[in-house]
Amino acid sequence: MASQGTKRSYEQMETDGERQNATEIRASVGKMIGGIGRFYIQMCTELKLSDYEGRLIQNSLTIERMVLSAFDERRNKYLEEHPSAGKDPKKTGGPIYRRVNGKWMRELILYDKEEIRRIWRQANNGDDATAGLTHMMIWHSNLNDATYQRTRALVRTGMDPRMCSLMQGSTLPRRSGAAGAAVKGVGTMVMELVRMIKRGINDRNFWRGENGRKTRIAYERMCNILKGKFQTAAQKAMMDQVRESRNPGNAEFEDLTFLARSALILRGSVAHKSCLPACVYGPAVASGYDFEREGYSLVGIDPFRLLQNSQVYSLIRPNENPAHKSQLVWMACHSAAFEDLRVLSFIKGTKVLPRGKLSTRGVQIASNENMETMESSTLELRSRYWAIRTRSGGNTNQQRASAGQISIQPTFSVQRNLPFDRTTIMAAFNGNTEGRTSDMRTEIIRMMESARPEDVSFQGRGVFELSDEKAASPIVPSFDMSNEGSYFFGDNAEEYDN
């Protein structure tokens, strides 16, 4: 783990906690998980779902989305002020799938948001429990990260689609708070800032007046979040320049895209947490497990152990491969979309394939898809080993990566060399080191050039047997250095459309 220093740990961010010791953190995270579980059980009762239907990941996603929508204050306010045809701002819903006479049927349900809020609060001892809501947002974000390569979004903001390893959390809503900021990748933060800068260039009043003052505060806050992700002084200094700019424009845009590229080699610290679907927490609570009393951590053995003992089902389209669908969801559960496939294969105990080789589309089923041909199958979400999630980018030494994705962002704290394609990355730096950030740029390029592919990161860190909950005997895996390590390699994943 990167030293926490003055930073709060993510469990504290996750639970809005002030400084807590490890036991208190485990208890408050457990409380959050228990609340999600209780809410899910109650919703299944309301909807009269069978046990099997309640364990269907598509039903879980609909129920999670309903509660997130019920608590989305800004959108609710907007919907009330701008009524649109056929949208009731006070209601929320989605597809629920039921097994009827041996076939899967889709039923569109509609609930009062007020009623959903009441059920959620009741499951969370009367609190709004925003930490639990954020947790579900991060699960949705991790699922998107594993399912889609955001080529269009990258290109629109002047970045290269091969930089997708920097895009963790790119679909997280803005209201996801400190826990959300911690899991956002460098590219995601750059993209958010670039969008602001572009608006400022096109709209003279963007930075002016009372609204402009708020915009400015948001801009500086985002700059500080991004600065905190960088691990070298030169990158941090460049972020200070971007933040202090009187009138952010093209120079800042250039600096930010430069920094994003540099992060492929001088990786930023991005938190990883295993956020599971509500249909995993519900049955665990129903079986009598007391998360608050037992304590829970999002970055240790607990999620692995929970998945070892969970039964989750998914709808499967006619030509999809259930094992591939399982891999997709497994990666999402562990926030591992940008991790090295060699490491993932070792931990999972079966070969993890790149996205383009998977015969599976996303987990969600569109409303126009034919239910007649839908089957369902068990998702295999178990693992051979477990490993500690990392909050750091690993040290800054790398190795060759593949054509589709030119770097990785480690999820697990496991000893290995970190793949990246130096030639491709360095070719993108057209040696432009003039301007006010020239000395920093020169320094950053120097550090990137001296990074050695064969150097090892996370020295001495290994994986653990599932029986080793105290992480007492690390097993340090050895990897084939020459092997392909990137998930979005030469990829044809669908595009994420909101």
Rank of each mutant, 00 (worst) to 15 (best):
V29K: 07
S407Q: 02
G200V: 12
N483M: 14
T151L: 05
R106H: 15
F338R: 05
G268F: 03
D72V: 13
I96S: 00
S345L: 04
S377N: 10
Q409Y: 00
T423Q: 15
V186A: 08
Q149N: 08
R65I: 10
H272F: 01
V194K: 01
F206G: 01
Q459N: 05
R213W: 06
N430A: 13
A286N: 12
E220Y: 11
R156G: 06
T442I: 15
S310V: 14
R26M: 12
M32Q: 06
V299W: 07
D439P: 01
L306P: 02
L266E: 10
L276K: 03
A237K: 06
F291Q: 07
A237M: 14
T147A: 12
S413E: 00
G126I: 04
Y78N: 10
A337V: 11
N321L: 13
F420D: 11
S383W: 04
N492H: 13
G228P: 00
I197R: 00
I444S: 11
Q398H: 11
I119W: 12
T171V: 06
D128C: 15
I444G: 04
P83W: 14
H324T: 05
E114Y: 14
G132T: 07
V299S: 10
A284T: 15
G187K: 03
R121G: 06
G102M: 04
F420C: 15
S170W: 05
D203E: 13
M167P: 06
M448Y: 05
R117F: 00
L154Q: 05
M43C: 11
N483G: 05
E107Y: 09
R175Q: 07
G362Q: 07
T215S: 11
D145G: 10
Q231D: 10
T396K: 05
T188L: 05
D302S: 12
G102N: 09
N321Q: 13
S345E: 08
R267Y: 03
S262R: 03
P89Y: 05
T157P: 01
D112H: 12
V456W: 10
L61A: 05
K198W: 09
A472K: 05
E73C: 02
E380F: 02
T437V: 04
N124V: 08
L110R: 12
A218F: 15
L79E: 02
I425M: 09
E449D: 12
